[in-house]
Design a protein around this nucleic acid. Structure first.
Length: 225
DNA sequence: AAGCCGGGGGC
DNA sequence: GCCCCAGGCTT
């Protein structure tokens, strides 16, 4: 309907997806927040804790944090100072602590239920465009891209540069990412791309020689690192 | 649109 | 020492 990524064919998208998924079967990461058994509370909390923070850092933080805070309600009796002290090891602790207490209050008012559309989700504290998509995909099984700096880097290197500075205001990138993750189990391709970005297509030192995408990667042809 | 947050990990 | 990390909020 919009044609910003029309120059990229469905076949190219399919091949990219297939290679990433194959790579993921052998090399994908396993994290607590990817387990089916966890609560929606934990799924949302994971996305918030992960903001601008390495996944391995949150993996270590996971057990002690959720032992202390098993639910939204459990966060209501903690002072801001206490919460800041708890969040401190993962960084950005002023904003995250304040936001979490605020979100816990909002969730109490909402009786633990989340909105089911993007605009309403983004009105909640600490829930922005990325997180809203993550919630829709991981909890409600929708097909939204987890389009952060990492997925953006992979898509840009492989398919070509985005047009605008802001990820969430770039129609080409939005449309391309949406097409790429448009499969039945959308969260798997999303996780696969994030894992691929973290382990192979890294920001500073991408491991191009062993990369399964290098033959058709636009960046590899130009700068084979 | 730009600035800011932050401890920890990798190099 | 420097750069980067599953972004969002404030100005």
């Amino acid at each position: 309907m919009l044609n910003h990524s029309k120059h990229i064919s469905a076949t190219e998208i399919y091949q990219f997806r297939r290679k990433i998924l194959n790579w993921y079967k052998a090399h994908g990461r396993n994290f607590p927040w990817r387990k089916k058994s966890i609560s929606n509370y934990q799924k949302v909390m994971a996305e918030i804790l992960l903001q601008r923070t390495q996944a391995d850092t949150i993996a270590k933080f996971w057990q002690p944090f959720f032992t202390k805070f098993p639910s939204w309600k459990s966060m209501l009796n903690v002072s801001l100072k206490e919460m800041e002290k708890i969040i401190k090891p993962i960084g950005l602790y002023h904003a995250k602590a304040k936001g979490l207490l605020s979100l816990a209050k909002a969730m109490k008012q909402r009786r633990g239920r989340f909105p089911k559309n993007k605009k309403a989700l983004e009105k909640l504290p600490l829930i922005g465009p990325y997180n809203a998509n993550a919630i829709l995909t991981v909890i409600y099984n929708e097909r939204q891209p987890l389009l952060d700096g990492n997925m953006t880097r992979v898509l840009e290197r492989y398919f070509g540069k985005k047009r605008e500075k802001e990820i969430h205001r770039d129609p080409y990138l939005q449309e391309l990412a949406t097409r790429v993750v448009n499969i039945e189990n959308s969260k798997i391709i999303n996780w696969a791309i994030l894992d691929f970005a973290a382990k192979v297509c890294q920001a500073r030192t991408p491991k191009c020689e062993g990369c399964v995408l290098k033959r058709k990667c636009a960046s590899y042809k130009v700068t084979p690192y």
